[in-house]
């Protein structure tokens, strides 16, 4: 039986406008992600994709519903436990890479290991080198972000997301800032790296080509997730 790493049930979330009006973004949303699975979430701008990603990544607490990460209920966790689970279970890839500009590639990739256990911290050299080799950047270990191309920066971000061996990588428009050729290569690296590490991937994207390369494609509309094709884009 394949293990469920993420299980979101009946998730609801809304925002309050300055004039007091409530706008519901997510409502009664269900999502289950299995270990090693890759899932693409598409949707119009403002449909709530980033809100969903923030809920999945424990960056935000949903207003309604329940959420289990690796079987652990998250609505009872303290801020500290929340942060710890987020560091252990998730890796993040952002549209704008978000690398530390004055730090080397090594330091950027090693960043998540700073919250890991003593062994992970001690062995970070080998871990970082292994990941950089996986994403094809072993020769850029001492470079700083300003010396890297957009594709290279995103590959560094992918290596960073995998550094602490998370159960799920959450990618927010990972190819949004790249040209199509580079985007294709980077998505290839992302999919290959997550598969080889046995990590689930949830990627939010506008790019149909990216979505097609995942195991499952979903569309976020009207606050819920639908199988691709069930909703007219």
């Amino acid at each position: 039986m394949v293990e469920l790493v993420l299980n979101l049930q009946g998730c609801g979330h809304s925002f309050t406008c300055p004039d007091g009006t409530e706008i519901g973004v997510l409502g009664g949303l269900d999502l289950a992600v299995r270990s090693g699975e890759s899932v693409a979430v598409a949707g119009r701008s403002g449909s709530g994709k980033s809100t969903l990603l923030s809920v999945l990544g424990l960056l935000r607490t949903p207003h309604a519903g329940r959420y289990w990460v690796e079987g652990k209920r998250t609505d009872t966790l303290s801020d500290h436990e929340f942060a710890r689970l987020r560091g252990e279970a998730f890796g993040f890839v952002f549209q704008e890479y978000l690398l530390m500009p004055r730090h080397t590639v090594f330091d950027n990739v090693a960043l998540p290991l700073s919250t890991g256990n003593k062994r992970a911290w001690k062995d970070r050299g080998a871990r970082v080198r292994g990941l950089l080799e996986m994403v094809g950047l072993s020769d850029r270990i001492d470079a700083v972000p300003s010396q890297l191309s957009g594709g290279e920066k995103q590959r560094v971000a992918i290596a960073r997301a995998l550094a602490r061996s998370p159960r799920v990588v959450l990618a927010d428009e990972p190819s949004g800032a790249l040209d199509p050729v580079t985007a294709d290569a980077v998505i290839g690296v992302l999919l290959e790296a997550t598969r080889s590490e046995g990590v689930a991937l949830v990627v939010v994207t506008h790019d149909a080509a990216v979505a097609r390369r995942t195991d499952r494609q979903l569309v976020l509309a009207n606050g819920r997730l639908w199988p691709k094709g069930a909703v007219s884009q």
């Binding site: 801020d79 500290h80 942060a83 987020r86 560091g87 978000l98 960043l111 700073s114 919250t115």
Partner: peptide
């Protein structure tokens, strides 16, 4: 960005 990133990778506020 860097500080928010640290929070995202599991650093607590403290």
């Amino acid at each position: 960005g860097e500080l928010a990133l640290r929070r995202a990778v599991g650093w607590s506020k403290r």
